[in-house]
Design a protein around this nucleic acid. Sequence first.
DNA 1: AGGCAGGCGCTCC
DNA 2: GGAGCGCCTGCC
Length: 269
Amino acid sequence: MKIKVTDDIDLRKIAYSGQCFRWKELEDDRFLIVAFGTYVIASQTGDEICLESEYDIDEQLWVEYFDLRRNYSEIVDNIDREDTFLYNAGQYGRGVRILHQDPFETLISFIISQRKSIPAIKTSIEKICAACGRELGVVEGEKVYAFPTPLELYSVPIEKLEDCSLGYRLPYVMEAARHFYQEPDLLDRMNEMSDEELKEMLLEFYGVGDKVASCTMLFGFARLNTFPIDVWIRRALDQKYINGFPFSRYEPYNGIMQQFIFEYYRGKK
DNA sequence: AGGCAGGCGCTCC
DNA sequence: GGAGCGCCTGCC
């Protein structure tokens, strides 16, 4: 399947943007993307995204996933030119989009992410998927597993999870899985909530603080105004915005600005 | 080979 | 309500 995109998109930038952990680069600029209980192999030629899979491809699902209904180039063009740092960050980050990922997977992934490097996060998540996720097939000689459902994760024997490099995060993961499993309408309720209510609720989860809650909202609930602050963003803000970041100017897309800043600042180190 | 990660909970004030 | 500390472990 091919999807024509009339907006900024760059699969490579997205793949390495730190928001997704189950993209794997294959040869020839192709990316294996496992999400929503299925997978695709994505590649890009100019403004055309090609998706291939042994499974049926639900175009609307992936349009939603890549947030293709939103016009990012317009958002980049709206950046204040006087703000040289943000303007440059926007240009540098052109093509990055905020993925609309599965909320449960996003929550668990960012719980795991605390005090871990990105390679370590990926390793841990892959182990979890292999331990209790559904087997989806074989791609380039490697088995592909779906991210587990709350039930699959909650009911896996604890010994198997102990081999997944979770460390002290193990009880955090189990608690979150239990919540989602035992409360089937939880997700619907969360989707109905305002940003403030959702944040409050996520913070009640054991092991979830401000950073993890914010990342879950931005990357898993498509709350694009959420502005996660990690050590990199903290440094960037302290250095470039002594008088505070102009959040009101970039509503309702502060989260996209955060992503640009993150890419740019981390890239330049 | 040892410090350090894209934090958080808990325990003090 | 804020500062200080311990935490698992893989990765560079």
